[in-house]
Design a protein around this nucleic acid. Structure first.
Lengths: 373, 373
DNA sequence: CTAGGTCTCTTTATCGATTCAGAACCAGGC
DNA sequence: GCCTGGTTCTGAATCGATAAAGAGACCTAG
């Protein structure tokens, strides 16, 4: 054995320090050194002291985590999978708020968070396959190929927002009903010229132009199966129909859930003639984009234009945005708990959280001039 | 822990499927099955096909990441260590913006992010020791015990903001000079009644009351050695002294970098008699807290009160906050690149990024009444 | 004086893959 | 016929630790 070690020294001039190195040097077994680090009560303090000194001397970085994880069968980390770019998720207050809640419960139990995004097809699949984790939290607004990749790992999973998979715990809200309330709020104020900006996931946009329409062609009966984005559109549809509006006459644009990008969709909508008196944004981030463009053009909110959002992110309150509140960080803590304290319930828990319309200062009855025109 | 249990239950129920299981079933060697997954060009398509079919049949979740990492010696993940609670980091736009930049470069190279916070003494140390990563990014505004823990892993490290460790790449800005500019801006407008709210890290607050003062007692010559928080205070000091103000007469309160908590410090300061005509906040988040309290009390900004922040987080622009801009996401991308494309430079690179004072609408000359009083 | 218990430490058997040197086979060139 | 070189596949040697069972030493009580 020592011969082998010598050989290794010659081959690579930097010999790695392992438990064995220390064991040899101190003159004890490898297991004892392992115990010195992981179960201090299993050996005499005096010996432990000596082992630690030698470890220090040899500049030992501590037990190798990969080896430890392999042997123990536990990583102490959960993977958080986003179906969008990570840098993009960090720009989205909703995603960040969710992470905040998740981090809270994870931290309390000493569990780490391994974040995984979807930068381009193929990359994430490999990262997911290689992630040293004990389970996954799948944060996915809509159907996405990564769902399958995650499930294939055969680890505990919690899905958030979408999809509901039988046997897999789920956290979400009733997007369709909530969206309907948002639209109803505008309709009851008397708005009849309404435009909608939907939140379309990036993945659905890849192929090119013209797909927006395909994405919007919803089988309304089964809209919930296609994720939060389309469920919300279906909810807006429900409300408009109920108010007697013709769905086909309502301008509806899909956009990415990004303030910057949403501005373009907002610009197109505010260019329409006649200009809508109200805009329904499928997320607050998009609503802010609308407000940006309105401010830029001197369109008064809510006098000339009403705006309603969705999510109630932290910035919504200071901005006075009327929106649908959903318990963002609570979704995170709930997802975390479902993952960390799994129940043996059958069927798997499916948590639908509360939502509530919050009326603030971006909604008002339509302007007279418009109503008369 | 409970996660472990669930994992175990599954394991004991069904015998685990490994490469060997598949190899036996197909009648080839384990190595060949490994190649089927990791190096498809090393075997005939036909055989690979058969192997994959059997793998599918046996419900094989793919090569075990821990084992793979152990053997390969590479994890494809970098650890991001915060010296505050993670849930707290997600509430801080500066930290989130940094993460956004870091995520951008990490994703491009298929590298995962393992986030680690500091929920309470002891927990993070263990998580850091157990993290299966190839390197660490240490996001630390001030001196902190975790720095030592991270360095002990003997992995590549990049520190952000603090501390500068010889031999370890560093990314930061000239906090002291930048802070001085922020203060000078107010002084040049004619303000003489200035109050300061400093950003004190949570870790420095643990012991109890009375420590604020100790934290503030700075050896000015060496303030940079104590991190961004105190370097900024030193910068404010420089400017005040230059303007002929007496440092000991300037009210200065430390607070956590959290809008909510900062409001309390702001309330105390706005209670002073005479009330300051200007407040210097060590971060934008704190500045927002000040603005909240001012709004609540009907104190007009900037007519009755000037406020200047630091960081230029995304919300600063819509809020019209005068602040010092630092390239937040660029700090993240730079840190990521230093970690992922290590240079053999000696000494290690020490990147000081640009900063710039951005004057917006929260600063104006002091009100007449105050000036006359 | 001996059975049983407690402390310490050692031995042996994995955890699940990848690496690397080589074996077997086949085709082509001289 | 023999050598060269390429393609496929195999066997043995790791990667660095932990779990479980066991071996001595020493102590205690019956």
């Amino acid at each position: 054995m020592s011969l082998l070690n010598q050989f290794r020294i010659r081959v690579s001039d930097v010999e790695r320090v392992t438990l064995q190195t220390i064991a040899d040097r101190v003159g004890v077994s490898r297991t004892t050194v392992s115990n010195a680090f992981s179960r201090p009560d299993q050996l005499k303090q005096e010996l432990r002291q000596r082992i630690m000194e030698v470890a220090e001397e040899l500049d030992y970085p501590g037990p190798n985590p990969a080896a430890r994880t392999l042997r123990r069968g536990r990583a102490g980390v959960i993977g958080v999978v986003f179906t969008e770019t990570l840098s993009y998720a960090f720009a989205d207050s909703y995603a960040v708020g969710f992470l905040r809640g998740l981090a809270r419960v994870a931290e309390q139990s000493g569990t780490g968070l391994h974040l995984i995004g979807w930068p381009s097809p193929g990359v994430a699949e490999e990262v997911i396959g290689d992630a040293v984790v004990d389970g996954f939290c799948l944060f996915s607004p809509e159907a996405h190929p990564l769902v399958e990749t995650v499930l294939r790992r055969r680890l505990p999973v919690v899905t958030v927002d979408h999809p509901y998979v039988p046997g897999v715990p789920f956290v979400g809200i009733e997007d369709r009903a909530a969206a309907s309330e948002a639209a109803t709020c505008l309709l009851e104020l008397g708005h009849r010229h309404i435009a909608i900006i939907a939140a379309q996931p990036m993945a659905a946009q890849v192929p090119g132009r013209g797909h927006e329409q395909a994405w919007l062609d919803i089988d309304l009966a089964a809209a919930h199966r296609f994720g939060a984005g389309r469920a919300r559109v279906a909810g807006y549809h429900d409300a408009c129909l109920k108010a007697g509006l013709s769905w086909s006459e309502i301008p509806i644009h899909p956009t990415t859930n990004d303030r910057e990008i949403a501005r373009r969709a907002a610009a197109r909508i505010l260019d329409l003639d006649p200009r809508p008196t109200a805009v329904i944004a499928a997320t607050d981030e998009i609503a802010f984009g609308v407000m940006d463009v309105a401010a830029q053009r001197g369109i008064g909110i809510p006098d000339e234009l009403s705006v309603v959002g969705f999510d109630d992110v932290p910035a919504a309150e200071p901005a006075g945005l009327t929106t649908v509140r959903q318990p963002i960080t609570e979704k995170g803590t709930t997802a975390g708990r479902l993952l960390l304290e799994p129940s043996r319930d059958d069927p798997a828990p499916c948590v639908l959280m509360e939502h509530r319309l919050i009326v603030r200062r971006t909604t008002a009855p339509p302007p007279r001039t418009k109503r008369n025109s």
